[in-house]
Design a protein around this nucleic acid. Sequence first.
RNA 1: GGGCCGGUGGUCUAGCGGCUAUGACGCCACCCUUACGAGGUGGAAGUCACAGGUUCGAAUCCUGUCCGGCCCACCA
Length: 790
Amino acid sequence: MDFPKRYDPKEVEERLIKFWEENSFFRFDPVSEKPAFVIDTPPPFTSGVPHMGHVLWWTWNDLIARYKRMRGFNVLLPQGWDCHGLPTELKVEKHYGIDKSRKEEFLKACREWTEKCIERMKSRMVRLGYSADWSREYSTDTEEYMAFVQKTLINLFKKGILKRTEHPVFWCTKCGTSLAKAEVGYVEREGTLYYLRFPISGSEKHITIATTRPELLPACVAIFVHPDDERYADLIGKKAIVPIFNREVEIIANPDVDPGFGTGAVYLCTYGDESDIKWQKRYSLPCVRILNEDGTLNGNAGPFAGLSVEDARIKVVEELGAMGLVEREERLTHRVLCHTERQNCMNPIEFIPKKQWCIEAKRFADDVIRLAGEIKWNPEHMKTRLVNWVRSMDWDWIISRQRVYGTPIPFFYCEKCEFVVPGEPFVDPSRDKPPVETCPECGSRIIGETDVCDGWVDSSITPLVVSGYWKGENGLYPTSLRQQGHDIIRTWAYYTILRCYLETGTVPWREILINGMILGPDGREMHKSLGNVVEPDEILEKHGADTVRVGLILLGVLGKDAGFSWKDTEFAFKFVTKLWNVSRFASAHMSNIPAPEKPVDRWILSRLARTVKDVTKAMEEYQFNVAFTKIHDFVWHEFADNYIEFVKYRLYDREDPSARYTLYRCLFTIIRLLAPFMPFVTEEIYQRLFRSDGPPSVHLCSWPESGEPDGKAEKTGELLKTIVSLLRSYKSSRKMPLNAKLSSITVECEDRNALFEIEEDIRGIMKVEKVKFGEASELEADGIRIDVRP
RNA sequence: GGGCCGGUGGUCUAGCGGCUAUGACGCCACCCUUACGAGGUGGAAGUCACAGGUUCGAAUCCUGUCCGGCCCACCA
């Protein structure tokens, strides 16, 4: 049989990708009798180049899809693209030099850029062997998709869950947009704590407050001290004078103040941080808005108007200093709220009161927690993350973004009374006509919303899209499985559960699988500046897709981060070669004609059965690294190192039909076990050796049945292994070639019958002329003793 | 500060109540066997983080300590 000496991944992969595509093997069959398995697949964000994290993600999805197909499921593995987003806008501004004020032109450029990104991503997925049903591809920037997003938003509006309200929002002055709570986080920063004196009204005394934000002085509306703080007991209820502005503010007792920090006195400005918002509400204080959206101070800041936050800080301190009101300054590290969702922004967040569209998510916290309980989490403990997040949430979901490349918020409202009129999807209220000319309430002019949606609004309804629910088919909803990273549990997983629940009343998926992050080889996050970035293309070019996949599968423990490892890639590549060589050997010696088994055959078949059992169990638990390692160990160390070596003498000398058939059975099973992991090399072997006995592709074969392991046969096999190992050791220690002849050996073991069964094998494998049973003492292992006569 | 996860030869890893603790990489010695040197055989290397406890029996279960990692949290 023709079987090339070397496996050429590049040639094979190109050929098989075409072969699979031409035959549409991976199309979802809508009329199939088989149970459906729907994977809620990632719409990867289409910005930049795919990285190792994407590749792990795809590999897992594809692995699951291929495995489930072999298990008899009608698998739907669709693919979508999450297009909208700030990074794309920024790229377009920079690359094309188009300003977003030229909206139509700008959007066109965004789409062009996105198309390119999709092409780049898709080509890598295809090369990796991603077995998606490409006929079901979708993009979040199509009118069809956006129309559905808008429809769900209008539903929420009608139910009174989506509203336009004024609220201080997280505002990034650098990106010029509001943000959701999930997009911001605290970052340790160096800063200065200023001790500022406020004169007490009608007194010679003063009170000293400590703050890191002196520039917010114009917005000061109160001073707080702890109710039990003796230092300030006599000042509670009195008024302090805001320096420079000569405004009076009340000194109020507030139990949340920490008397141990700074001076124990804190001033409230609208708004310096989240507690300011809480306290302002609690004590019904006024709001002085001093910040513009670009991060400069406005007219309310008096002499500081027009300055940036940073400049104002210096100026205020200077002026207070001149007045003798700066008591002291001290350096400190504190936590600053920053735009953490975007690694290359990380700008400090300001709070600006604004009218925003908001989904009242908090109301549904208990429902989301209940639904999380109905979903099977892998690993289980990741559910805690979601639950903790939902419990700690104290803000609703602000969905409006002051951007252009996004799904338009589908509402119009009255310029005077703010009465809201929904549009008819698809609608772009920034350019389309409102459905009514004037406000039905007050007769004033109706204007269109110009904001667009947060990107998560698009991507949180993918289960409704992939299942066909959005087109009125709901047979496939809820979907079977979502796979995603733990870093976006509080965003993607949470928002998806919430949105799908609000739309359908049920869970979006039955199971969720959490993958870890792929770190650099040094164990740190991959960053260009750290020089620890490994590009998937590099390995893909060198060793092929199967190696890339297995290299990552070995790292991928459920929910755990792992550093990229060249060793594992090397390991994977060696195994591809090993499998190829094993198959090459088998191609010359195996046969599909059944024949009765001999003891050694029964042993390997039992070991094989056990392997199938273990691997299947690991696959069901999504422990892919364990599953692969089990197959690897069996193939290399039991099948190749032992079984094949044990039967060579039978194959070479007498073409033993039992060995030939056993070889066939083992390899066919191995190929099928490995097919989901290494789709290319297994398909190539299948086409060469097994195609005539089965379906047109190994990926259409069924998953092997395990059968029952045979304990007795395994014991006999172990006895043979031990004896062979002892004799190899004997030869090795005497620097003899392994195929050196021995005249006789005497074996002392418990089971004389077993020894009798394998006597011929011992003689054939180790070139021993005579095997005797009896007392021995020269070599010993596992309670078996041997004497050797060279 | 709260929560979660983990700590097994030099490095990575399996085992998660019961045979002498799995395997890989690396290391040492050897073999040259007609699938594979991207081989093969043999070997050295571990008090399974530490301390208690439960049990006939603990790497495995419980408690505490130490050390890492991640997530969350308003100390201005």
